[in-house]
């Protein structure tokens, strides 16, 4: 079955990203297809490569990135939400005249249309948030 995943909260403050990650991992292990993981609202904060959580804690950005790499996941960060919150890729940083970018390579920035598209293409869309 084709699943789309929506993550609406950033890492650590709320459990939503953890639950979404564990759900996604379990779905893949059961042989389901994850057509897209879409990060919206504060969920875009999962995509920064600059987080440095304590060594004895989980690193959600790394967990998501490793899962994406292992399963060729399409992990999309909403551009409008990302711009509000300072999540930028190289192109956006250049375009907006900012002096740095911070997105981890496993994520890509795109429009909200990717969320609707996931809703259309997936058999099930599951939202995690606060």
């Amino acid at each position: 079955m084709k699943f789309g995943i929506v993550v609406n909260e950033g890492p650590y403050t709320h459990q939503a990203s953890d639950t979404a990650y564990n759900f996604t991992k379990a779905a893949l292990e059961k042989g389901h297809e994850i057509i897209r993981v879409f990060f919206y609202h504060d969920g875009v904060n999962n995509a920064t490569r600059l987080t440095v959580p304590p060594q004895d804690d989980r690193n959600l950005q790394k967990l998501w990135s490793e899962l994406a790499e292992a399963h060729k996941l399409d992990m999309v960060v909403c551009i409008a939400a990302a711009q509000r919150r300072g999540i930028l890729d190289e192109n956006e940083a250049k375009r907006q005249g900012k002096d740095a970018d911070n997105i981890a390579p496993a994520f890509r920035i795109s429009g909200l249309g990717q969320l609707i598209d996931a809703g259309i293409k997936a058999d099930r869309l599951v939202t995690f948030g606060d």
């Binding site: 079955m1 699943f3 564990n22 759900f23 991992k25 379990a26 779905a27 292990e29 059961k30 389901h32 058999d123 099930r124 869309l125 599951v126 939202t127 995690f128 948030g129």
Partner: peptide
Amino acid sequence: DYAGFVDLAANHARTQS
């Protein structure tokens, strides 16, 4: 468990959070 959560999502037409 999480696998059971996946089964529930698969076995119902839609998930409402």
